[in-house]
Every structure is written in C-alpha cells, then in structure tokens.
Amino acid sequence: MTISRSELEQLATLARLQLPTTSCDELSQQLTNIIDFFDQLNAVDTATVEPMAHPLDMVQRLREDVVTESDQRDKLQRSTTFTKDGLYLVPKVIE
C-alpha cells in the first residue's frame, strides 16, 4: 500500500503539521514502509488473542469523588501573557 501525496497532506492537516514541500516524496515513502510493516503484522492469525488495551496487566484505580483542587488561576496564568478577565486568549475561532 502506498501513501499518496494527498493522503500525506490530509494526515498533516489532522496532526496540525506543516510539511516541508521538498521532502514530501521521502515522507510518503517512509510512511508507506511503516504501513507495509503493519501488513506483515496483519498476516499473523490473532483470532484467539484478546486485544491488549494496556501493556500492564492491572486495572484502573478509582478516586473518591472529592474536590481536592483549589483555585490556582493566578499562579497558572503567570505562564502566559495571553489572558483577559480570567480567560485564556487564542486566535479567533468562531462557528
């Protein structure tokens, strides 16, 4: 299976990555190699193997439903200058 130029661009968009136009062919080839490797894995018969969700054979610990965090806004917002009236500011997004 070959990763086409347009598929590469779609992936880059989803990942919010800007691709250097000069190396697109090289990246396509590298990704194609990775996908080919998955094809090898797919060839293994896993019908009787339970899918692994996590490498550790343990179960999730649960916390009690108690509020343990206090308001740290002033401290946390010191790491950015882009705030106003307690809000974090980002480039305009609107629906």
């Binding site: 108690v66 509020v67 343990t68 965090e69 308001d71 806004r73 307690g86 809000l87």
Partner: peptide, 21 residues
Amino acid sequence: NSKIFSGSATAYGAPPNTQAS
C-alpha cells in the same frame, strides 16, 4: 462533585478558569 479525571470542582457558573487545574 469533582471532575472525571481530576479533583477540580464542577460547580456551574464559577469565574472563568477558577476550576481548571
């Protein structure tokens, strides 16, 4: 009372980002 993955409060209407850890 608290969030699904943190101990922050879930109360409605608090001043912005005062319940964001």
